[in-house]
Design a protein around this nucleic acid. Structure first.
Length: 287
DNA sequence: CCGTTAACCTGAGAGC
DNA sequence: TGCTCTCAGGTTAACG
């Protein structure tokens, strides 16, 4: 589910509701997420004040007053739900999947504040919560990752340098979080469509003008997706609301067999698999 | 160093 | 109605 734009949307709504708030109590119903939730997780968070909610790549970071940090990853299916204690206005949702009711299954963590609580739901349990106990460890955690596509570090010079010796195809390079951090399968496909590059093309074969396009369109597509509230793919028929709408703007993802959406292009969109991930591209205009 | 594969999980949807 | 199969927005350990 969540690539950089979706995580950014979740971060924004989390921030709005929990920044400067004090955690009263934490309940962990299931510790078996991607990494086991620490046994002292509840104890560490209890009575802590959240001083900031930030994001790097697909990670959300809660900052606490005592200089502890909590790194959160949503995996494929992690969502947060805000439940207010008010009688009139309950079940307000702050998740990426908009819902009017809380799912019954797979609620793993509950964080209780004075007038509301947030619940972490994750059917596949690929997400995780990890406590980091000082700033240096936090920094080194992210230093190993590639630059954020929206940051200034992700520029022509960086890409030119890194691509020159890469035999690997550009699609898998964009998905490699140590190469660039935050792009997932949907946006990798979209970025390559905008840049008119075949996903099978080797890194070292990418031309200078194409490198500039990848930089340009990575930023453009991700920003546009954030503007539209991210993408909601699965159609939750029983749930109301429509937080993410960028799926309506997809140019290439999930459009196999259809005509190319590029102006004046007569190509057909085809689907292939690269390292078990689906790739979509136009056979005519992506060279 | 490189690239590939399987593994971690559940649920939706297709096909029979 | 139900079985079996494939696929899904992500990451990473293990292998050759």
């Amino acid at each position: 589910m969540p690539e950089l734009p979706e995580v950014e949307i979740v971060k924004q709504s989390l921030k709005k509701s929990i920044k400067y708030k004090k955690i009263q109590k934490v309940i962990v119903y299931n510790r078996n997420l991607r990494f086991k939730v620490a046994n002292n997780f509840e104890k560490i968070l209890k009575n802590e004040i959240i001083t900031e909610v930030s994001r790097f790549s697909k990670y959300i970071i809660l900052h606490f007053k005592n200089e502890n940090y909590c790194i959160i990853h949503l995996g494929m299916t992690g969502t947060f739900h805000l439940i207010e204690n008010l009688k009139k206005k309950k079940n307000t949702n702050l998740s990426f999947y908009q819902s009017t009711t809380l799912p019954k299954k797979h609620n793993h963590i509950k964080i209780i504040f004075k007038n509301f609580k947030i619940i972490y739901n994750d059917p596949r349990r690929f997400g995780f919560f990890e406590i980091i106990d000082d700033k240096k460890k936090l920094d080194s955690y992210f230093q190993k990752k590639g630059p954020e596509p929206l940051s200034k570090k992700f520029n022509y010079k960086y890409l030119k340098n890194r691509l020159s010796n890469k035999k690997k195809n550009i699609k898998n390079l964009l998905l490699d979080q140590n190469f660039v951090s935050g792009i997932g399968n949907i946006y990798a496909n979209e970025i390559l469509f905008y840049s008119q590059i075949n996903p099978r093309k080797s890194g070292f074969k990418i031309k200078d003008a194409e490198i500039r396009d990848i930089v340009k369109y990575s930023k453009l597509v991700l920003k546009l997706a954030i503007k539209h509230g991210g993408s909601t793919i699965r159609d939750f028929k029983n749930m109301k609301g429509s937080y993410g709408s960028f799926q309506k703007k997809f140019k290439i993802y999930g459009r196999e067999g259809k005509n190319c959406t590029r102006n004046k292009c007569d190509g057909t969109i085809c689907k292939i698999y690269q390292t078990n991930r689906s790739s979509f591209f136009c056979i005519l205009c992506q060279k």
